[in-house]
Design a protein around this nucleic acid. Structure first.
Length: 570
DNA sequence: GCGATCAGCT
DNA sequence: CACAGCTGATCGC
């Protein structure tokens, strides 16, 4: 249980409210437990009376978020429309108590309301109230409810609850009054359904299938059939927040304040340009690239530190290395009640990622998972093994013929380790085009930067775009840059290359060969292999997994779901 | 004439 | 196929 210093709950309450098994526990409460429960409430009330009164609050925002989790908690996050700041967090926690009346189980909900502020004492006031909502009326998912048109004074809401409390004997729940009902109606101004997670997810996917039937990955990158702006798929939004991840192709998304970017690859930043007028959150390297390559204005970007929680609009966010390309990170979101959501962005799972102190088993509620290779036939060696193999190949080739040009395919960012390792082994420089030169110099790797040159004849190791690793393109490249080579070899590091299991350590395949041009495919991946994904999930044991890649077809999703179930049940 | 977006391709 | 682009055409200003 993460009850860090930023948690708005005391440790005791956090445990009480957010324990993963709390729901189950309440359903099976014995009368003994009930007694304990009412004692607890009593203590709480006593403590509440000694706390300072809540100061009057004016709800200035046009939007509030209603979040109902497994623990059936409800929170309203209030934002100042002028500053975009969350000055106050106004939370209403609900806990559930099940009583056995006759044979029928009925669930009643007690409310504990409290106000909290980032700057002052976290718990200003607590109270408990009679039943206002029934469990059945709460969905376990998150709903964003627009409060447009309402100008609600918080005191107006809660004064009525307080009145109810004083008129009610503390142990006997009474029926809600019409007044408090109407207030809840205002907040839940759209119908709230009760559904199991699975069912809810299924519906969100099939809704997406209907809306965007073009298949593919709903990146918003392709597949538009009309001039209508596409909707942001649900799995790019973080429930219970005003956050989205890697969603720049959908204009200004309703209810979104913070646009997170996991790394600088075009299918993730797609749509981002200098006209971007919202707030982007990412790591230093990615922000550098957004500025230099896309012209995103610095005032529209916030650089977040790695490996530590930073508060963004009332929610703590930590950036963790994703082991994908340089400047790639995962996002770990921590809610005021301790709930954790992990968005992996694109990542390659490895033991050193799982060893991160912020990633503990059984702590994560929902994980948004890079499922690029989530199929049992995707197995490839470690990056180190493949790099080793590439270095050996290049060394052999150069020994045979020193007038060999080595062209290594790369992405805009990504696959750097391959040509870097080769250049290190050969103790030589690395030729890159001017644009690539600028990009690589932003990656904060001194040895890499020192080896770069934009003069083609200074080294045998040339960096080219992945698309240029074809026989005719390589030929053109060799002709264009130098006459001092008699042979050219292309290195194509891509995860889609099926590794040749030659029994040895030569992890490559020959993709094409002519008299003086050979292209080698290396199974060098910057996404998790199937086994790595499996190990990652089996270690973390999240409550729920939402895939973010290969989600365009229902049958593929079903297959992945099958794997998830297996992994989580071991 | 420029940038943004799209189809096609790898 | 997917990935992470690239190229060239078209659209909007």
């Amino acid at each position: 249980m993460a009850t860090g210093e930023n948690s708005y709950l005391t440790a005791d309450e956090a445990d009480h409210h957010t324990s993963s098994s709390s729901l189950k526990r309440f359903i099976t409460l014995s009368s003994d437990d009930e007694e304990k429960e009412s004692n607890k409430q009593m203590v709480k009330r006593q403590r509440a009376s000694s706390l300072p009164k809540a100061s009057p609050l004016k709800l200035m925002n046009k939007q509030a978020m209603i979040r109902n989790t497994r623990q059936t908690s409800l929170s309203i996050i209030r934002t100042d429309v002028n500053t975009g700041e969350n000055k106050w967090n106004l939370n209403t926690m609900t806990t559930q108590i099940t009583t056995k009346q006759s044979k029928k189980k009925t669930t009643q909900t007690k409310l504990a309301t409290f106000f909290s502020s980032k700057s002052s004492s976290p718990l200003v006031r607590t109270t408990s109230l009679p039943t206002v909502i029934k469990k059945e009326s709460i969905t376990e998912k998150t709903d964003t409810v627009s409060l447009e048109g309402f100008d609600i004074d918080a005191n107006e809401i809660f004064s009525q609850w307080t009145d109810e409390l004083s008129n009610t004997s503390s142990t006997t729940p009474t029926k809600p009054t019409v007044d408090s009902k109407s207030i809840w109606k205002q907040i839940f101004n759209k119908p709230v359904k009760s559904k199991a997670d699975d069912q809810e997810l299924k519906e969100q996917w099939s809704k997406l299938d209907k809306e965007q039937p073009t298949g593919g990955n709903h990146h918003g990158f392709r597949g538009s059939t009309s001039d209508m702006k596409r909707n942001c798929p649900f799995y790019k939004k973080i429930p219970g927040t005003t956050f989205c991840v890697d969603a720049f192709n959908f204009g200004n998304i309703d209810g979104i304040q913070a646009y997170f970017l996991s790394h600088f690859h075009s299918d993730h930043y797609g749509g981002l340009n200098k006209k971007f007028s919202n707030m982007l959150y990412s790591n230093q390297i990615t922000c550098n690239l957004c500025k230099s390559q896309l012209g995103v204005r610095p005032e529209n970007m916030t650089v977040l530190p790695m490996n530590t929680f930073t508060n963004v609009h009332g929610i703590d966010v930590a950036l963790l290395d994703a082991n994908h390309c340089p400047g790639s990170n995962m996002f770990l979101f921590r809610f005021p009640n301790g709930k954790l959501i992990l968005h992996t962005g694109d990542f390659r799972a490895a033991s050193h990622l799982m060893a991160h102190p912020l990633l503990q088993p059984n702590q994560i509620d929902t994980i948004y998972l890079d499922t690029t290779y989530c199929d049992s036939h995707y197995r490839f060696p470690s990056q180190d093994e493949v790099i080793q193999s590439a270095v050996e190949l290049v060394s052999e080739q150069l020994e045979q013929n020193p007038r060999t040009l080595v062209a290594v395919g790369t992405y805009l960012v990504g696959k750097e380790r391959v040509f870097h390792a080769i250049a290190k082994a050969l103790e030589c420089k690395i030729f890159v085009e001017a644009r690539k030169f600028r990009i690589l110099n932003q990656l904060e790797d001194d040895d890499l930067s020192n080896r770069l040159t934009t003069k083609a004849d200074e080294t045998n190791v040339h960096v080219v775009g992945m698309g240029s690793v074809t026989p005719p393109m390589l030929q053109t490249h060799a002709d264009k840059h130098s006459l001092k080579y008699t042979k050219i070899i292309g290195i194509k590091p891509t995860g889609w290359t099926t590794p040749r299991t030659t029994g040895g350590t030569k992890h490559y395949s020959i993709e094409s060969k002519s008299s003086n041009t050979t292209i080698y495919g290396f199974p060098y991946s910057e996404h998790s292999s199937f086994d790595e994904l499996k190990a990652f999930i089996e270690y973390l044991k999240p409550k729920r997994i939402i895939p973010t890649v290969n989600v365009g077809r229902a049958n593929v999703r079903e297959k992945m779901n099958g794997y998830f179930k297996q992994w989580l049940s071991t």
